[in-house]
Design a protein around this nucleic acid. Structure first.
Lengths: 204, 204
DNA sequence: TAGATTGTTAATCGATTAACAATC
DNA sequence: TAGATTGTTAATCGATTAACAATC
């Protein structure tokens, strides 16, 4: 069954909470989760229901089982290989963000146009020149590109990624990318987040 | 009139598009914007309508006026001062992201617990020890904290921010923060983004 | 049992899409 | 005028909230 983006996002937040519960807490209620995230408790139950059979009347949800169900449903275990394209500050920050691996995102290499960076390693990930993208895309079995190049290079680099038949582009640049319909683009719009955050009382 | 988060987010994307149109393009149609973002064209018109009176039948929207209307409505011009708390890779990346200033987000200083960083400057922003947070919050007129500390320090640092009566916390850590209701928290959930992105065909 | 909590339905609310008259 | 595009209404769709019976 299809799970909507909003539900996926909330399930990932529930997982953060479960992740930090001590061993001694065996059960957690929808009321407790709802309170921590300031959402409606029946929404929490409904979200969890989409994972299948998890809860126990009167006691709540088994923390370990619930965590496991979220991990299975959201695919934390099936790892996906990804490239970071743009080894600047943001690209390096993401390369050093080891939590990604726990959620199934495995960063295998990085690309940059700066010759002084090519051949170096950032948190163990090798940095290559972009001209080798096609070759290395085939070698590493990666279909995700995390785009962290400067705004003005964004489209040109995207063309290279598209040419190499990358399937997913996670776009951290404030540039609207042009790409064929079969390439899935996710705009990580930090500016938009900031504006929502400070202009509005809704939560994310 | 209140504008919903989804509309704010799309308006910021429209702004990116307008920002990159050459001087020669005086007008743009809702159909063109819709095509670039793969959204519905009547949604674009409705979103723009929430800005007030902008369009011209037959010719489309005046690019300059539309840009200006988005900037006014979303408050790009009223700058807000912010601190980055955590001068690691991600904090430094955000400190170097000069585009923020164009959208009204002015980063005035950074905080870290690492003594070797305290006293240094990152992209011109001074780095202070966290024990000076309260003092400097009053000095700089800042009510936003961008939280980029390691996950395990997140709650402890949040307590300091709350104590100093910060109003907005932009949380980049994968930790659910506990804070009083009058502190507004925005979770920038990168893990959640990744999961939505790769599990689902909806767009963001 | 009494009480707490889930699962689920129905009601409400808001967002998206489709359609088309009005406009220039 | 003819044609393109906005503005706006109505229809549809989906998400949230409220309520409560079922359960242990």
């Amino acid at each position: 069954m299809k799970i909507s983006n909003k539900v996926i996002n909330r399930l990932s937040l529930y997982h953060f909470i479960l992740d930090e519960l001590g061993e001694e807490e065996k059960y957690i209620s929808s009321f407790k989760i709802a309170e921590l995230l300031a959402v409606d408790n029946s929404q929490v139950r409904k979200d969890i229901r989409s994972l299948g059979n998890c809860g126990k009347c009167r006691v709540g949800y088994d923390v370990k089982k619930l965590k496991d169900a979220i991990e299975t449903t959201l695919g934390f275990k099936q790892t996906r290989n990804a490239f970071i394209v743009g080894a600047g500050n943001l690209g390096s920050a993401l390369a050093k963000y080891d939590s990604f691996a726990n959620y199934g995102l495995n960063i295998v290499a990085m690309f940059d146009s700066d010759k002084s960076k090519i051949g170096s390693y950032i948190n163990g990930k090798p940095v290559f020149g972009l001209e080798r993208f096609l070759e290395l895309k085939n070698k590493f079995d990666a279909d995700i590109a995390i785009l962290t190049v400067p705004k003005k290079a964004a489209q040109q680099v995207t063309d290279v990624l598209v040419e190499a038949k990358i399937k997913y582009i996670w776009n951290f640049t404030p540039h609207i990318l042009k790409a064929p319909d079969d390439v899935k683009i996710w705009n990580e719009n930090l500016i938009g987040s900031f504006l929502q955050f400070t202009n509005n009382d809704e939560k994310n």
